Amino acid sequence: MRKTLPIIASAVALPAAILILGPSITVRTEVLHHESSGEAGVTYEHSGARWSSDLYLVELRTITGTSYELRLGPNAAEHYYPVELSFGAEPPAIRDVTWLPDSVALTFTSGEALRVPASNFRSVR
Rank of each mutant, 00 (worst) to 15 (best):
V124E: 15
Y56D: 10
D102Q: 12
Y68W: 14
A17K: 02
G48W: 00
A105W: 01
E35F: 00
K3L: 08
A76L: 07
T26D: 00
S123D: 15
P92H: 08
V27H: 01
S47N: 09
P91V: 00
A76T: 03
P15T: 05
M1H: 11
S110Y: 04
R50M: 08
L70D: 07
A13V: 06
Y81N: 08
A89Y: 01
S67R: 14
A105S: 14
I63E: 03
I94M: 09
A9Y: 10
E84Q: 09
G38E: 12
D102F: 00
A9R: 07
T29I: 14
E45Y: 02
T4E: 13
T62P: 12
I8R: 08
E78H: 12
E45R: 15
P23K: 07
S103D: 09
T109E: 15
G22C: 03
P15W: 10
S53T: 04
L14D: 01
R2A: 11
L19C: 07
A77L: 02
E30V: 14
I94G: 08
L55Q: 08
F121N: 10
S119H: 13
D102Y: 01
L55I: 15
L85A: 06
V116Y: 11
E90G: 02
L100Q: 15
R71F: 05
T43V: 13
D102E: 11
H33D: 11
Y80Q: 04
F121I: 08
E90F: 09
A16H: 03
S37V: 10
P15H: 10
R115T: 15
T62E: 06
W51N: 11
I7N: 10
I25N: 03
I25G: 06
T98G: 00
I8M: 12
I63A: 13
V58K: 03
P74W: 04
A16V: 15
H46Y: 14
F87E: 06
P23G: 06
V27C: 02
V31S: 10
Y80G: 01
I63M: 14
T29H: 00
W99E: 01
L106D: 03
G48P: 08
S52T: 09
A16R: 02
P101I: 10
I18P: 03
W99M: 00
L55Y: 12
F121G: 08
S86N: 12
P91G: 05
T43W: 04
L106I: 05
G65V: 06
R122D: 06
A40T: 00
K3Y: 13
P15D: 09
G22Y: 02
E84D: 13
H33L: 13
A77Y: 11
W99N: 01
M1K: 11
T4S: 14
H79L: 02
P91W: 00
I94C: 09
Y68T: 13
R61P: 01
V58N: 04
